[in-house]
Design a protein around this nucleic acid. Sequence first.
DNA 1: TTGGAAAGTCAACAAGGCTGACATAAAATC
DNA 2: GATTTTATGTCAGCCTTGTTGACTTTCCAA
Lengths: 166, 166
Amino acid sequence: MAENTNRGESLLFLTDEQVRKGIEAMFFAYRGFTADPDRILEGMDYGRAHHRAVHFIGRSPGTTVSNLLAVLGVTKQSLNRVLRTLMEDGLVEARVGRVDRRERHLHLTEKGGVLERQLSEAQRARMRSAYRAAGPAAVAGFRQVLEAMMDPAMRAHYGRLKEGGP
Amino acid sequence: MAENTNRGESLLFLTDEQVRKGIEAMFFAYRGFTADPDRILEGMDYGRAHHRAVHFIGRSPGTTVSNLLAVLGVTKQSLNRVLRTLMEDGLVEARVGRVDRRERHLHLTEKGGVLERQLSEAQRARMRSAYRAAGPAAVAGFRQVLEAMMDPAMRAHYGRLKEGGP
DNA sequence: TTGGAAAGTCAACAAGGCTGACATAAAATC
DNA sequence: GATTTTATGTCAGCCTTGTTGACTTTCCAA
């Protein structure tokens, strides 16, 4: 309570209350963020974990299993369960590496691409609408704060995707 | 691909690529957002669900179970399991309503307050550091975009907390 | 007095995390 | 060439946190 006696207006955004509001904004916004894809996936045999896999494979075609593991931050057992069903259902294809044949390079099939676009379209619609409502300056700020909030290891993955893929 | 032929620079922030980057920023940032409290909670018998309950009870002392249900967006069975352990462990107290004695008004005990502050402190430290790194203008934009991303029902809960209490 | 809302409880289940142990193939190293 | 390391896959089992459905108790309000 008495920790923030700073009333210089330039630091008002560091007020305890402001920071708490930011925390709650993240919580509520994340729910909106996942709501549309979740709705699409319920009824299918898939969940949020499948969405994430399909998203990042679509983003970086040919990515390896271990790279995906690092990006998603889960165990290989957990990811494997997801990838297995996606491959069984013909949404994802694993091609043996040509230079290193231990590696499996992951690609979306045509069918997988259809689902990816369906999910992505819904999520992008909401994001685009939020962007439009807030305006370009707000979007820049949004991205800056989020980037500063990431763990350094995650920021590396985020940045790598910036450039466009392997 | 051919959907965004708009090259008017004022709308560049609505580029498909920009929107996708925003989606990934949310994903990676949310992991950072929850990482510190998660670390504290592992080893205790609690998880993220307990954190959320303790957070919102601390924010709105005296809130009812059904209000908490609406804010958290889970089923009462799921919340009940969490509240039961918190009450058994003496972190949360449920007081029978004075005007409507069916209602239970939830409060943190002293012990509950200690945990709340511990978790909150960790999470606020990260948020504050991100705020500091990004600056006041970015923070305003961050909040605007997040708010626009929420479902209307969630935005109502978010706004109510703005004013300060029940 | 009675209907219905608020709260709590029991049971069963699913998704999606986790650990540990182990198997295989292929690359890298000695 | 033999050995070690790496990438991947798989089995088994556990935990948290979500779900639905059925049911009870309490008690406000019409």
